[in-house]
Amino acid sequence: MTKFWYVIDNIESYICRTLLAIFVCLLFLQVIVRTLFDFSFSWVEELSIYMFVWFVFFGASYAAKKGAHNRVTFQFKFLPNGYIKYIEAFADLFWVFFNVYFVYLSIDFIFNKMNRFQSSQTMGFHLSWVYIVLPIAFSLMTFRVLQVNYKKIVLGEDLRDPDAIDLEEIRAETANPEQEKK
């Protein structure tokens, strides 16, 4: 896969890391100027909250891509492995239904129902520019849900639980005692 496609395939990750880095720096700046100069930028808190909301919903889509959303799975313990992905795919149909309905609702809200004066208190722009993340991120998430199920069922890939990835690293690191003494 080319670099370009890699970036596109992980677009949420790039967006989120950028947003996270920016709002963390903004908040740090705010702490610094407040404690050192008794001064506050009135727009920092509001802007960082809006960036945070974007970060959260794109992050949720990225988590969907990684298959990271928590499920309760102990009840499948005695089922043959081959069946589980079909049951989960069926459950994911509800997810798709929910997302599609939510995208419809959010578009209706933003374009038809939202008050025309509803703007940022400290920066002036209309809040639909912030809310627009909802239809975008939930559409993207729906695509990710379908993508993951396609990979699992059609391509037969075994998506690893991202919580378990840490474990592999831990194993690797503990297998190498040099690392401890460093």
Partner: peptide, 12 residues
């Protein structure tokens, strides 16, 4: 208003 009174308030 607070700025008019010469201090920069903290929105919280």
């Amino acid at each position: 208003t607070y700025k008019a009174w010469g201090i920069s308030p903290t929105p919280m």
